[in-house]
Design a protein around this nucleic acid. Sequence first.
DNA 1: CCTTTATGTGTAACCGGTTACACATAAAGT
DNA 2: ACTTTATGTGTAACCGGTTACACATAAAGG
Lengths: 325, 325
Amino acid sequence: MVTIKDVAQEAGVSVATVSRVLNDNGYVGSETREKVMKAITKLKYSPNEVARSLYKRESRLIGLLLPDITNPFFPQLARGVEDEVNRAGYRLLLGNSDESIQKELDYIQTFAQNNVVGMISATNYLDHELYEALALPLVLLDRTSEDYPAVYADGREGGRIAAKALVEKGAKRITVMKGPSHIKPAQDRFRGAIEYLSQEEVDFSVMSTTSYSFEDARGWAEELFDKYADTDAVIASNDIVGIAILHEALRLGKQIPEDVQIIGYDDIPQSSLSYPTLSTIRQPAYEMGKQAAKLLINIIRKEQEVERSIQLPVELIERNTTRKG
Amino acid sequence: MVTIKDVAQEAGVSVATVSRVLNDNGYVGSETREKVMKAITKLKYSPNEVARSLYKRESRLIGLLLPDITNPFFPQLARGVEDEVNRAGYRLLLGNSDESIQKELDYIQTFAQNNVVGMISATNYLDHELYEALALPLVLLDRTSEDYPAVYADGREGGRIAAKALVEKGAKRITVMKGPSHIKPAQDRFRGAIEYLSQEEVDFSVMSTTSYSFEDARGWAEELFDKYADTDAVIASNDIVGIAILHEALRLGKQIPEDVQIIGYDDIPQSSLSYPTLSTIRQPAYEMGKQAAKLLINIIRKEQEVERSIQLPVELIERNTTRKG
DNA sequence: CCTTTATGTGTAACCGGTTACACATAAAGT
DNA sequence: ACTTTATGTGTAACCGGTTACACATAAAGG
């Protein structure tokens, strides 16, 4: 391994001077700078981040904690975070917590042990005490909080928009699927939908679900048409479930959107690849990731006028599981 | 920040003793161990990984380099890697290289600068010189190589199986989609399909594509039916493209699988959520990730009898875009 | 009883950077 | 000509761990 000492020796200067050249601070004579640069190139020197991180007590790493990257909503979020974080010269330590508080705590600890400059968390549980003890800049993603800055989409409005669209498109017997109760954003969109429907002249029923996963989605779909066979519109808890419902409806010989209208939530990329293409409420996942990263970096850099939290707008994407006009 | 010194002081011993307790090596008296443990608990001490990493010249991080986590094939891979890597006490530094060699090089450099113990790369380009200069344990994933251990699925066999299935199911005018030429596994499966078809009594045509992305998938689908309107079976370059083709075929009023049979590749989770559900060649993505991580860890630990490379089997998943029997 | 050997603990060097501080010299100000 | 001030460079302390080595004591062996 080539160290700063080797470079110093090669250039015939001290390590301090090499360091000054590397970081472009302090005074360095122009010929000296030249010599050092040449030595760096010659030896293919690349400074060790770990040593720097130890002294500075701060690495150039940012921790990203997700529930599960395997859920199609998260890769986009993650990319948004990564792209923005890279722009500022940081790199990502990634962790999936599943639904395990233990894993979450373990990751938070690792992040801290590695001197990360900050972290972004999109997990559902949130152990306040530990996060507090941390004293690490933290931004929450896809989640609201009183205590920490957060970036999220307007779930309540999303639920409302979905409900409004279905009512306007003539739905009479709407079924609203309620997502897992420990997932906050799931509850927000559910609440938005219920609020809207309650003030309208329509019948609606609520079906509770306890997970978002691919594996269970088909089960929810079957249960839905079993329990509410005559429903003519469904507000799905997310796109995965929405596509499963669509699939099941077709299997039962229903016409989409004539017999049943369906609105998903998230607008994951594959929603536009279903058949018929799924109408949905779009959450700007990539943008949310970017904003969260930006916010975190501003906090890290102690910029003035840092927003406390950022709410991004949602949007109805009308595709082919809802009627036209 | 609580350091080992604080613990030493609190326990009334030297830092060396605390270190011995932490790492459970060297001699430590049982009462002394007790005292140290108590101090650790009391101060909520958590050793700094960076300091350890500097002295040991080795962190507990592993670098994972992917083309793009946003491509639905990769989240599963990543989870496989992460889960296995965690079991062994390591954590992941994640990077997406897109198609950029520069980004790839940058990430490799960062990995090295952070003293990662090893790296797993699933990227398409591979700058041999740099990887060589690295002297970092490296395992390639979803990719073969003469020079490095690799974990991959049997693409050629996959292509063959897909072609065989279609021929057996009565396809007469098969269109084979050729994936981007810089993506090695895409070429393998293509080659497998062509090899099989060449020895059979069927007509087939080849359509070249230059990307795998969602955004372009629809375009390829349109082009396909434009150029080869009378094709009765398609071997898609991957599931995304397969689903887009399915979608387009339905839009054109074709019956699936009666008029057109379609076989995808990868078996990404959402393939079972399409309508009709997509027949495909399954690559065990999660398992591939796990195996790659296992292999890397074995190399790191300098275990004996480490396999050079691991080829995993692919499997035909018959769903509803191919005819029965 | 004396020498080994095993056990327990502390001191200090080390990992590879960064930076405070000392020192030297040149340029600028009075 | 003499003090400031700006510029350039090196020495060594420091970051928070790990470990080689020294040293002390107790147990075991002859």
